[in-house]
């Protein structure tokens, strides 16, 4: 692998490290690393890069943080398996279903996982192409009951024609039946047949 370009933003106060990241992103097509020496700069650079659709890898070195930033278009060219995101299919499909079974994405720090889930819903609402249906099951039902921000984004999707099916058994189990903010209560039969009939199911 080629040597990664490194930008030293140590000894710099916010917002300088973010400005440097922004400039570098505008120039670089390939992944690069930015070095910062304080928590605030680390969080800010990470937030900024993620807001630009980049993948971020963080490592703590002695006395500083190293933040690897992989621009969106560079992802597929990297060899790391976690970066090889399948290209969206070319043909338009109108029967895509997103199957959400947890209120967090991936296994790791819960705080990160829930934030990712929130960001995912936000991104869905921003996207031109919307899924046909979204199914919420198990702790996924928390996304439609406990967080106003997420509910707002889901409502926007709903207004544009995306249907939200929420597992009734799960709502009951977590005592959330009265807290539904968006979507409609569904059952296993409907959910099962929706999944079988779907052209594409994206599971989270």
């Amino acid at each position: 692998m080629m040597e990664m370009k490194e930008i030293d933003a140590r000894n710099l106060q916010c917002p300088q490290p973010v400005i440097l990241t922004k400039q570098t992103l505008a120039e670089e097509k390939k992944a690069f690393a930015i070095l910062v020496d304080n928590e605030a700069a680390k969080d800010n650079v990470k937030r900024f890069a993620e807001s630009r659709g980049c993948k971020v890898r963080l490592s703590e070195e002695e006395g500083y943080f190293r933040i690897e930033i992989i621009p969106e278009h560079a992802k597929t060219t990297l060899e790391h398996p976690e970066c090889s995101i399948p290209e969206p299919q070319a043909e338009k499909q109108n029967n895509k279903v997103i199957f959400i079974t947890s209120d967090e994405i991936g296994k790791g720090e819960r705080k990160l996982g829930t934030r990712l889930a929130s960001a995912f819903i936000y991104a869905c609402a921003q996207n031109e192409e919307i899924p046909h249906k979204i199914i919420f099951m198990n702790t996924g039902v928390r996304l439609v009951t406990q967080n106003e921000e997420i509910a707002e984004n889901l409502k926007r999707l709903e207004e544009r024609g995306c249907e939200m099916l929420v597992c009734g058994t799960c709502l009951d189990f977590y005592g959330l039946k009265d807290s539904l903010l968006v979507g409609r209560v569904s059952n296993m039969y409907e959910i099962q047949s929706t999944l079988i009939a779907a052209d594409t199911v994206v599971s989270l």
């Binding site: 916010c14 917002p15 973010v18 937030r47 900024f48």
Partner: peptide
């Protein structure tokens, strides 16, 4: 702006 990494150092 917070989501774009514009949180000042004093916040920490």
């Amino acid at each position: 702006m917070a989501s774009l990494g514009m949180i000042p150092a004093g916040q920490k």
